[in-house]
């Protein structure tokens, strides 16, 4: 016997299918790893599923999921570190200079983000990728506005001092 899917289940399914791509993109920036990003979104969605009747009633399913996702990633008590493996050398394929510029800049940003703490990374993703205000970012991360500002400043400072040069990178000759 096949059980008919409930209305709530089918609405949750629609929500997952519609919002997973965007959630995974944010999670990818947070973790720097496809598998970890999927795990992170999966864990956050599992929590949303259990609270579905409540969050659906309140109309804040995506906000709830994102909040769970960011809290999972920056939980202050969990020294869970994410590492990324980079090739020792870049492949020597001949590429169009324009394409090479994009790829090199992407790789530089990836490596620069990896130097940040989970909280700094979360603040940058919320502020500059998701274009959230300071207040919204503080609300999602469950911290004060002052913390968001100080973490943003620290993250940008560190980003500038690492391999990713925000202003000058585009001027470099890459091939």
């Amino acid at each position: 016997m096949t059980r008919e899917p409930s209305r709530a289940s089918s609405e949750f399914e629609s929500f997952v299918r519609a919002r997973s791509p965007a959630l995974i993109r944010s999670a990818y920036l947070l973790t720097g790893d496809q598998q970890l990003a999927e795990d992170l979104v999966q864990s956050a969605l599992a929590r949303t599923y259990r609270a579905w009747s409540r969050v659906e009633r309140l109309g804040n399913a995506e906000a709830y999921t994102r909040r769970a996702m960011y809290h999972l990633q920056v939980s202050f008590w969990r020294r869970r570190r994410v590492r990324e493996v980079y090739p020792e050398t870049l492949p020597e394929a001949r590429v169009d200079p324009g394409t090479a510029d994009v790829l090199a800049r992407r790789d530089a940003l990836r490596q620069a983000l990896a130097q940040l703490t989970n909280r700094q990374r979360a603040v940058l993703v919320l502020r500059f990728y998701e274009d959230r205000s300071v207040t919204e970012t503080a609300e999602i991360l469950g911290c004060g506005i002052g913390t968001v500002k100080s973490q943003t400043a620290a993250a940008l400072k560190r980003l500038r001092s690492e391999t990713f040069d925000l202003e000058q990178f585009a001027e470099r000759h890459l091939v």
């Binding site: 997952v16 299918r17 997973s20 791509p21 995974i24 993109r25 944010s26 999670a27 990818y28 920036l29 496809q34 990003a37 999927e38 979104v41 999966q42 969605l45 994009v102 800049r105 992407r106 940003l109 990836r110 983000l113 940058l124 993703v125 500059f128 990728y129």
Partner: peptide
């Protein structure tokens, strides 16, 4: 960041 995020694949979760 948008460019980097575009690398992510979106499997059916």
């Amino acid at each position: 960041m948008s460019d980097l995020a575009s690398e992510a694949k979106s499997p059916d979760l």
